[in-house]
């Protein structure tokens, strides 16, 4: 159990080498070192990871879901960024 003054940390785990770290959850800890040890005990009891990152939740900036439409709008009409946008005749190979 925690004390009221213990900050919240977000936990990111790399499940095996070659893969990216992925957010798995959060926990309270007195400092980063304790957060790493608790993250190991809470999130990797079955060898789910080879590396852990922890970051204070208050240090993470994120986009606002209410503004998501406007925020991601610039990419919406740029379908030509996908290879399937271009019609290439069947007989052309290796393209």
């Amino acid at each position: 159990m925690t004390s009221p003054d213990w900050p919240l940390f977000e936990v990111f785990i790399r499940s095996r080498s070659g893969l990216e770290h992925k957010h798995v959850g959060s926990l309270h800890a007195v400092d980063a070192r304790m957060a790493l040890e608790h993250a190991r005990d809470v999130y990797t009891r079955r060898l789910e990871g080879v590396s852990i990152w922890v970051a204070r939740s208050s240090d993470i900036a994120a986009s606002d879901p209410l503004d998501a439409d406007a925020f991601f709008e610039p990419a919406r009409d740029k379908v030509y960024r996908h290879p399937t946008f271009y019609a290439i005749p069947e007989e052309v190979k290796n393209l």
Binding site: F12, S57, D64
Partner: peptide, 24 residues
């Protein structure tokens, strides 16, 4: 790798007042 983690999740030009949206 930890310092790298911090620098890559920080999006400098956001207003941190409204920006925090994390799981916990």
């Amino acid at each position: 790798e930890l310092p790298y983690a911090n620098s890559c999740v920080r999006l400098g030009h956001y207003d941190p007042e409204l920006a925090v949206y994390t799981q916990g």
